[in-house]
Simulated assay, not measured.
Amino acid sequence: MAILRILLLGLVLIGVASCGGNSKFKSYNGPEVTRLVVLKGERKLRLYHGRKVLEEYDIGLGFQPRGHKIYEGDGRTPEGHYYINRRNPNSKYHLSLGISYPDVNDVQVARATGRRPGGDIFIHGRGKFYERGRGSDWTAGCIAVTDREIEQIYAMVRDGTPITIYP
């Protein structure tokens, strides 16, 4: 009887150990994400494989959500065609994927106003620094999802994936 209990306990411990813990780094073996689309007006981020929507997320935007980002500090989320150009596994917003803003046109527009275009536009989670009650549009120009959602997006999306951000 004691041997049976020891074996049972061992199986339980093996089962618990195989659960994998709470790693923020997930794996993904589904269809390739071929593009991302942000619909600012609808507060949606869609991940596509070809014409098929693989996932859709509710998002938060910059604290000034209307209009294209013109200069650093304006609180707007850019609009246009970009691509995912980097990832930050140590983001203060849990995980983040960089967006290739600014492009050449963005730099010219900002300089015409006598300002810098800014940068560091990401799709990111909330992380430790998110404060409840800030509303849905709380970033400095980034695209925000929950921490659980950015874990999934981070696993699914590769560097170089195009992203189009619509008004």
Rank of each mutant, 00 (worst) to 15 (best):
A2E: 15
I3N: 02
R5D: 03
I6W: 06
I6C: 00
I6V: 10
L7T: 02
L8N: 01
L9N: 00
L9Q: 00
G10R: 03
L11D: 00
V12L: 13
I14K: 13
V16E: 06
V16S: 07
A17T: 09
A17R: 11
S18C: 10
S18W: 12
K24E: 13
K24L: 14
K24N: 15
F25T: 13
K26V: 08
S27W: 09
S27V: 12
S27K: 15
N29G: 15
N29D: 11
N29W: 10
N29Q: 11
E32S: 07
V33N: 04
V33W: 05
V33K: 03
T34E: 08
L36M: 15
V37T: 04
V37R: 07
V38E: 02
K40W: 07
K40E: 06
K40I: 10
G41D: 12
G41K: 14
E42C: 09
R43H: 15
K44M: 00
K44D: 01
L45A: 10
R46N: 07
Y48C: 12
G50K: 14
G50H: 13
G50I: 09
K52V: 01
K52R: 09
V53M: 05
V53W: 06
V53T: 14
L54Q: 08
L54Y: 08
E56H: 02
E56M: 10
D58E: 10
D58I: 11
L61S: 03
F63H: 12
F63D: 03
F63L: 06
P65F: 09
G67T: 11
I70M: 06
Y71P: 03
Y71K: 10
G73F: 08
D74S: 08
D74W: 09
T77E: 06
Y83F: 14
I84L: 04
R86S: 15
R87N: 05
N90K: 15
S91G: 09
K92V: 13
Y93V: 03
L97I: 06
L97G: 01
L97H: 02
G98F: 05
Y101W: 07
Y101M: 04
N105H: 06
N105C: 00
Q108W: 08
V109K: 12
V109A: 13
R111H: 15
R111F: 15
T113C: 04
R115F: 06
R115T: 03
P117G: 02
P117W: 09
P117N: 02
G118N: 00
F122T: 04
I123L: 01
I123R: 01
H124F: 04
G125S: 00
R126G: 08
Y130C: 08
G133V: 15
R134P: 01
R134K: 14
S136L: 12
S136C: 00
D137Y: 14
D137E: 11
W138D: 06
T139K: 13
A140K: 15
A140I: 14
C142D: 03
C142K: 09
I143C: 09
I143H: 08
A144K: 11
R148I: 10
R148W: 13
Q152G: 07
Q152V: 14
I153H: 04
Y154V: 02
V157L: 06
V157M: 07
R158M: 05
D159E: 14
G160K: 12
T161M: 05
P162G: 11
I163S: 04
I163F: 06
I163Q: 04
T164C: 05
T164K: 14
T164H: 12
T164E: 15
